[in-house]
Design a protein around this nucleic acid. Structure first.
Lengths: 246, 246
DNA sequence: CGATACGTTGACGGAAATCAACCCCGGTGG
DNA sequence: CCACCGGGGTTGATTTCCGTCAACGTATCG
C-alpha cells in the first residue's frame, strides 16, 4: 500500500476555498498517508454507533450523512462532495451519532486518526483550518435548521440548490451554472423534510418559472438571481474566501 | 479590571462533563482573563454580521442563538446555559452568521480571542476539548434537523425537553427531574418551527398525559421514560462522559 | 388601575402528507 | 426479441397536521 498520493488534490482545493495555503502546507498535505477505496452507490461508509479509527476524505463522488428514526424514516443531514471530510468530527467524538453513505460510485481515501492528530500537531495552522472546516459544517446545519423551521417547500429546495451550486463551484465542478446532481427526488425530500410527491410538484413549479432545468443528473440554474431570491440565499454562512460571482 | 476570577467554575463543570480534567488544567482555566458583564433579559450579545474579537462564556443565565428571516420570522438555533460558550466558533469564523441573545438576566464573561488562542497553544489538550465542544454543538444541530424534518410537534417538544433536562443536569441545575425553564411558549415555537398556538395545545397534551408539569418557570418531568419515548430521545449525541441516569 | 405580556381556546383555511395509480425507461433473462 | 421487472418520476383525490385569525383569560407591574 502506497502512503503518498496525489489524491489530496481535492482536499487542497477545498481547504484553499476556506483560507490561503502556503506552498509548504500544500506539500505537507500531499504527504498525508491515505488508504484508498472505491465504493459503489448507496453504500454505507460509517454507521451510527460505530467507533471509527480513521476519517474519510471524499476524493470523487457524492455522499450524505443521515439518521434513521424509529419508523424507518430517513433524515439526510448534509450532502458531501470531493474534498470534504464528512466524518472529521469522529476525531474528537468517539461514537458516530449518524451514518455516512455514498449516493453514487465514489473514490474515498481514509486517514488514520493518529496520523491526522500528529499531522495537526506539526502543522497547527492546518489543524486550525480543519477545525474551521467543522465549524462551517455546523454553520451549514444552522442554515438547514432555518430552512426546515421557517421556510416552506419551495424556499427549502431553492436554498439547497443555491448552496450546492456555490459549494460545487468552489470545488470547480460547476461550468456555466450547470452541475451534476446525482440525487433522486426522494433523497431531496429526505434532506428537506418533504414528501417525494411534494418535491416533485415544487420542482415542476421551479421549472415552470424558468428558474432551473433538471434533466437526468444535470441541473442547470437558469435564473441565479431568481433562485437566490426564492431561497432567501445568502452565502455568508459558507465562509468562503473566494466570494466572486455569488 | 481583575484578570483572575472564580467565574470559570461553570466552564470547568461543563468541560468536565465532556472529558476528565487534570488538576493543573483546572488551575490553568482559572487563570483565563475574563471581562465580566451583567446583562438584562432579551438583550443581544452578538449580532449577525458582527466580527467579534472575543468569545462569550455564560456564567449564569439562559441564552439562545437565532436567525431572522426575510419576513421577520425568528428561528432559534440553540439554547445555552451556564458553562456554555455559544460563540466559540467566532474564533475561526470571522463573521457571525447568526445572533446571540439572552432570554433572562445573565452574567457573562468575555474572553479575548487572542487570549483564548494563546491559552490553547499552551494547553493543547484543552484546545482539543474546546474543539470537541463545538463538535457537540454541531451534533445538537443535527438532532434538531432530525426533529424539524421528521418529527411532528409532539415529538419535537418532547425531544427538546429531554435534551434540556440532560444538559441542565450535567450543569447541576436539575433537582429531582425539576428545573427552571425561563422560556415562553412563543420562544419554544420559534425554536421548533411551530406556531405559538400549536405549542400550547401540544403542551396541554403532554400535561394531560402526565408526562410533564409546567407552572411558571418551573418544569417538572413526571414520566421520564414516557417523555423519552415521546421524543425518541437517545442522549448519545450529547457525548457526555457521565452517563448515569439517562 | 389600566397596560402589557403571556397563556388559552375555538373556528377556519392551507400547505403538505398520504394513498393510489400510472408512465417511462433501462436492464435482464427466458 | 420481447416480456417482465424495478426504480424513478408524474398525477389526482383525499386527509391531516398545523398555521392563522381572533377573542378572551390571567398575572405582573409601574
Amino acid at each position: 500500500m502506497e502512503t503518498i498520493h496525489p489524491h489530496t488534490a481535492a482536499l487542497i482545493r477545498k481547504l484553499e476555498s476556506l483560507a490561503p495555503l502556503a506552498p509548504e502546507e500544500k506539500a505537507a498535505l500531499l504527504g498525508l498517508p491515505l488508504r484508498l477505496k472505491t465504493v459503489a452507490a448507496d453504500q454505507d461508509i460509517v454507521c451510527e454507533g460505530d467507533r471509527p479509527s480513521e476519517c474519510c476524505l471524499i476524493v470523487e463522488g457524492f455522499a450524505c450523512r443521515y439518521n434513521l428514526t424509529g419508523e424507518g424514516k430517513r433524515q439526510i443531514l448534509s450532502f458531501h462532495i470531493g474534498g470534504d471530510i464528512p466524518d472529521l468530527q469522529s476525531l474528537h467524538l468517539r461514537v458516530m451519532d449518524h451514518s455516512l453513505g455514498t449516493l453514487v460510485p465514489s473514490k474515498l481515501a481514509f486517514i488514520q486518526h493518529d496520523a491526522l492528530r500528529s499531522f495537526m500537531r506539526s502543522h497547527p495552522r492546518l489543524g486550525d483550518l480543519f477545525w474551521r472546516d467543522t465549524l462551517i459544517d455546523a454553520a451549514v446545519f444552522r442554515q438547514w435548521i432555518v430552512g426546515l423551521g421557517r421556510r416552506e417547500a419551495r424556499g427549502r429546495i431553492a436554498h439547497l440548490l443555491c448552496e450546492l451550486l456555490v459549494r460545487l463551484r468552489a470545488a470547480e465542478l460547476v461550468e456555466d451554472h450547470v452541475f451534476g446532481l446525482p440525487v433522486t427526488q426522494a433523497e431531496l425530500g429526505d434532506a428537506l423534510g418533504i414528501s417525494t410527491v411534494h418535491v416533485n410538484r415544487v420542482l415542476q413549479e421551479l421549472r415552470g418559472e424558468n428558474l432551473i432545468s433538471w434533466r437526468g443528473e444535470t441541473l442547470q440554474v437558469l435564473d441565479w438571481e431568481g433562485l437566490k431570491q426564492a431561497g432567501e440565499f445568502d452565502p455568508t454562512y459558507l465562509h468562503l474566501v473566494k466570494r466572486e460571482a455569488l
